[in-house]
Design a protein around this nucleic acid. Structure first.
Ligand code: ZN
Ligand code: ZN
Ligand code: ZN
Ligand code: ZN
Lengths: 143, 143
DNA sequence: ATAAACCTTGGATATAGGTCTAAGGTCAAG
DNA sequence: CTTGACCTTAGACCTATATCCAAGGTTTAT
């Protein structure tokens, strides 16, 4: 069992953030101590880890809540609902990954084309590489 | 040449957003009409496309500005600087992709394990699938 | 027994990224 | 030559996601 400050420190966030998540319905401690302290279990810690990872890849707190709420509501849901929600999130992720891949290709092409020397970048065609639709970027490089 | 409203409409954003990007130093129209209207070129349109794609994959406007500024500053930069910045962004992208992949695996595992039927999801172990570190999720599924 | 950490409610402030309003000027169509 | 769409600026306002602070009280650690 972790107290709020311990859990916060473990993830390098503030206690305030945990109270905030609680208010937002994302993560409530599994119990309170007799003196009223929030007591977080390993399970809570896992959930927090999930929340932070989801945030890191661009899900909003609302998105995350909807994922977490599957658990809460599952007594009242049917598998078809669960599966539909999960599949929707899978699609979101696939879209994000496709965009990232596209970006990576552009930037990689640029990095490859740039000599990386200490000479002026005057002719280094960054934006061309970034903006053009793949394939036809020419790098007859300078210097 | 596009007027602000035309360009905005083409990307389904507000004219306000374009003015905002201009104030933030992200994208200024190449010229103004005699009456002061912002006039955007094809090149500007390409840059906007770049900005929006970068945003869509989670780069902040500040990040994007730093990428765009390579172009602006390149007369004063050397290839080494350009390459360093680009490589840093490549690393960012790789990190995001790794996280997304991890997420995708978790969710996919869940989707696979869930029967998707109209029966109660009471035993559908969503959070277990989401939270556990890969590999050891057991789905001896219900019903 | 004192400090450090925690609790509460409630509100202020911050940052990012817009979105809207007010008060006016410009332009194309009928 | 009027109407309605579009433009200008400056600044107010909004949401999401926190972070901080106040005031007053309790608990835990040393
Ligand atoms: Zn170069
Ligand atoms: Zn070079
Ligand atoms: Zn199921
Ligand atoms: Zn099922």
């Amino acid at each position: 069992m972790y107290r709020i400050g311990e859990l916060a420190k473990a993830f390098e966030i503030k206690s305030d953030t945990l109270r905030f998540y609680e208010k937002q319905g994302l993560l409530a401690p599994s119990s309170r101590s007799s003196s009223g302290y929030r007591m977080y279990t390993e399970q809570d810690k896992q959930t927090l880890s999930f929340i932070l990872r989801a945030k890191a890849v661009g899900f909003s707190l609302a998105d995350i809540k909807s994922l977490l709420s599957i658990e809460v509501d599952k007594a009242n849901s049917v598998c078809a609902d669960v599966k539909a929600l999960v599949n929707a999130k899978l699609t979101d992720i696939e879209v994000k990954m496709a965009e990232l891949t596209r970006f990576h290709i552009s930037l990689q092409r640029l990095a490859d084309a740039c000599c990386g020397s200490a000479k002026s970048a005057e002719h280094c065609t960054v934006l061309e590489a970034l903006e053009s639709d793949v394939d036809q970027v020419r790098h007859e490089h300078h210097h």
